[in-house]
Design a protein around this nucleic acid. Structure first.
Lengths: 227, 227
DNA sequence: AGGGTTATTATGTGCAGACATATTACAACC
DNA sequence: GGTTGTAATATGTCTGCACATAATAACCCT
């Protein structure tokens, strides 16, 4: 009858009706376990979940308190582009516009933690949804450390080859807005200066950088999630 | 000696070195528990964590498999604006530019699930970092259902009053890029058409809509997170 | 062979008890 | 007074066991 999700719901209710005030301490796990008639582990599960969501703050010995200024946490799904387009019911295709082996600009090399002078594989790809420009991808690939054989990126999107051949790497993602430069404008078929939604991703294995990607999405693109 | 985080690390290692292939089944919790010499609950904790991160897919009876096309999950922190600015070592201030009680435009009313004709509290606020424009906030507030007394929003940011007086609500967040309109351009001190980073948030209690906020950030704004 | 029922199986969750660890408060000491 | 050591305490995690639940596989009956 009483599962950890029920406990979580009841805790949330008490926070909402201000039985427990923001910034205030709540009873200990032990006390709540007794009150709800469940094991402490069950209370722990519920409170831990709320702490992960940013609703509670917990510290050993200090106890558990309601977050005064809750830093809400939103989880975004970052699908591969093909899935993202197909999820809209559109057909995905892409064109490789440029492929070269060259030195990256200094800011990119330094963000990847590479010494200057190293050459990387550079790819420019246009992703299309139902034949219309969807996103313009520029990617720097550390070809040194990638598994061989490397595929023909004209055929197989680098994105997909990477996720299935270089499993589970860490990295970071950033979102910004920028005005379209002349190249982006031409490729995406928009006016120069149009607001673009940019996502930049950098990925690493434990030791070495793998790739830096910049995706420029045309207007109307939207990243959305529930909280 | 062996905690659930060690188990998780070992599982990730095996995925990285392709002992366990994307799309493939991995041993059962029971088997892993025996192999690692820990209780099944400990293995469960580790695998559950990886499933939440999108690395594994788990189904009862069917077993656990490595996600073939991993939908990577990124968790964003959504702090209140003041914290965000102070975290950069800048001073936060704000000006309420407009405050009115009026009917929202139809698209906003419908997104909030309100019948047309209802009046809402409308606020336009400019947030400043070290005295320079940081973000332009436009907010519709469902004053009906808010706790009384409502504060003077000239003094206390609606953002902060809400998080500490209407605890734990659900909602959604969306990010887009848009060109600055004349009003936004004037307020933020940028040229018309400049790319702005927009975040739109809608929040709800269990029953009723609370608020719809649109934040327009000037150029250079960046949402960033680790994956 | 087809369709529906039952058994099996892997994960999901629960319990009670134990020890580990971080942090606080307080006491002792120089 | 300020520092250091120590005890108390709340959370973190583990174990071993049990039962619940969902989904597949096997079976049976027609």
């Amino acid at each position: 009858m009483k599962g950890w999700e029920d406990i979580r719901a009841e805790v949330l209710r008490r926070i909402r009706v201000r039985d427990w005030q923001p910034g205030g301490l709540i009873p200990t796990e032990e006390e709540l376990a007794v009150e709800f008639g469940v094991a402490r582990a069950t209370v722990n599960r519920a409170l831990r979940d709320l702490a992960e969501a940013g609703v509670l703050e917990r510290r050993r010995k200090a106890g558990t308190r309601v977050a005064a200024l809750p830093v809400r946490k939103a989880t975004l799904d970052i699908p591969v582009i093909r899935q993202e387009i197909e999820a809209r019911g559109q057909a995905h295709s892409f064109q490789v516009l440029k492929q070269a082996f060259m030195e990256p600009p200094v800011p990119i090399a330094s963000r990847l933690g590479l010494p200057p002078g190293i050459k990387l594989l550079y790819l420019e790809t246009l992703h299309l949804a139902d034949g219309k420009p969807f996103a313009f991808e520029t990617r720097w690939l550390n070809s040194e450390i990638l598994p061989r054989p490397m595929p023909d990126f004209q055929e197989l999107s680098a994105n997909e080859w990477l996720v299935s051949h270089v499993a589970y790497v860490t990295g970071d993602i950033a979102f910004t807005a920028e005005g379209a430069g002349p190249r982006e404008a031409a490729v995406l078929g928009v006016a120069v200066g149009t607001a673009l939604f940019i996502t930049e991703r950098m990925t690493w294995t434990a030791e070495s950088p793998i790739t830096f990607v910049r995706l420029a999405h045309g207007s109307g693109y939207r990243v959305q999630t529930l909280v």
